[in-house]
Simulated scan of single mutants.
Amino acid sequence: MSDVAYWYAISAVVLFFKMFANSLYQAYHRIGKQAFKTPEDARFVGRTPLDEELAPVQRAAMAWRNDLENIPIFLALGVAYGWVGASPGAAGWLFMTFTAARILHTIFYLMALQPWRTIAYGVGILCLFGMCWQIVTALMG
């Protein structure tokens, strides 16, 4: 297995577990407080549906939406990175730094920590640009 494929696979798995943990965080707050916005879920536990989600659930949902704007781009660029034979040496740094930045972004989002959330987001975006640079360089080389 190539270094690129190795780091890509590790990143993809870690990002999956990060997103799954975000789902568990939402479930923890909904189930723990027996507070559901969805009518059938509220009825299932004998409650009235909420007019809006609990604040921690809302924050987790916003972090989730941000993941859905960034992680698929990373996954697509990672495939292209491997296909074109971009730098194996840079792959580990770019892929794992992106992954760490996304984990920190979610933590900072859930804890409402600025400017740290924006810094983590920016680091992840820089990694995506770095991946693009490596891909274009490989294509031109």
Rank of each mutant, 00 (worst) to 15 (best):
G85Q: 03
L50G: 03
L54C: 03
A9R: 04
I10T: 04
K18R: 13
A27E: 04
W7K: 00
I71S: 07
A60Q: 00
W83L: 11
F98Y: 09
M19Y: 10
Y8W: 12
A76G: 15
R43V: 12
Y25V: 07
A61E: 13
A9I: 06
L15R: 04
W93C: 06
R47A: 11
Y25L: 08
A42D: 10
A21P: 05
Y81W: 04
A5D: 10
S87M: 01
Y8R: 10
E40A: 15
D67R: 11
K33E: 10
G85C: 02
A21N: 09
V79G: 06
F36V: 06
A91H: 00
N22I: 12
R59H: 03
N66G: 05
F44E: 14
N70M: 13
A61V: 06
A21I: 11
K33I: 05
I73T: 04
M62R: 15
V14S: 08
F98D: 01
F20A: 15
A35W: 05
S23E: 10
Y6D: 02
P72S: 04
D67S: 13
R43N: 15
A90K: 02
E53M: 11
F44R: 15
A86S: 08
N70V: 11
F74Q: 02
T48G: 04
P39W: 06
T38A: 12
Y28I: 13
A61W: 07
A90Q: 03
K33M: 07
E53L: 13
A80V: 09
P56C: 10
A60H: 00
M62L: 13
K37L: 14
T48E: 14
L15C: 06
I73Q: 06
W83E: 12
L75R: 03
T38V: 14
A86H: 01
I71V: 15
G89W: 01
R43Q: 15
N70S: 12
N22S: 11
Q26F: 04
W83I: 13
R59F: 01
W64E: 09
G46Y: 03
I73D: 01
R30Q: 05
G78N: 06
N22C: 14
I31V: 11
V45I: 12
A35F: 08
D51N: 14
G89L: 02
G78Y: 08
L24M: 15
F20P: 12
I71W: 05
A35C: 07
